[in-house]
Amino acid sequence: MPSLADLQGAFAAALRDPARRVPAAVVVGSEGPRARGFDVYRNNVAVSLTEALQAAFPVVQRLVGDDFFKAAAKAYVAQEPPRSPVLLLYGQGFGDFLDGFPPAQEVPYLSDVARLEWARLHAYHAADAPVLEISRLAEIPEAALGGLRFVLHPSLRLVRSRWPVVSIWAASSGQGNAEAVDMSVAQEAAVIRPALDVDLRLLPPGGYGFMEALMTGATLAEAAERASQQDTAFALAEHLQGLFQIGAVTALRQSGPDSSTRTDEP
């Protein structure tokens, strides 16, 4: 008699590989629908995980159609099955997977759309945090502004694409005009959920570098310096305003990155 662990190992292997025989310990009917009993489990696993990906990547599915999406999902599930019983964020690697999925090479922007959709999913389930108004900056002595660090919203993620990924997403989700998308344009975006709704914000030149620097703990002066290197016309005041306006700032810190002193709680 096989141990429970051995039995489950054989069962699991047969679930993942339809070419593998059903473990000998499993009893199914010899004929009639009952003979398909084991296939119900195979089907449940495959269909439920495909559905999880369909729910997470509706625009990718719309761009390539059901059959293509299901084939991609099947290959992804085989390569990166879930490692946790919490499936809320399953599919984090789907964009990178599509980069190496040969049939997807004809749709070169597909993986960027997938990464954008996962950023939206992440924002949906991210921790909640109260958002600071820009007026709080007025409380900081002017001499201290350059050394200021920002605690940014837990839902915030940046997306960068050599394709017009935001326009493609908007056109394919019914929020924009597909014919008006200029495929020669690269786009950068911020995904954030300051309250209940997930926002997708197209970033002006320099915005990506500015926010990325702030997210990795740079001071305001350092972030502005890095953004200026990318965009010589970088206007700090406008970008600061944009940062607060999308609800990205949750706290300000006046001291070094290791200090836990939050000088400005909401």
Binding site: L4, L7, Q8, G9, F11, A12, L15, R16, A25, Y41, N44, V45, S48, L49, A52, P81, P82, R83, S84, P85, L87
Partner: peptide, 15 residues
């Protein structure tokens, strides 16, 4: 529903 480090997302049967 889990074996090794994989979660199968189904309620699988037991002897």
């Amino acid at each position: 529903s889990s074996h090794g480090d994989v979660y199968y997302n189904d309620l699988l049967p037991l002897p």
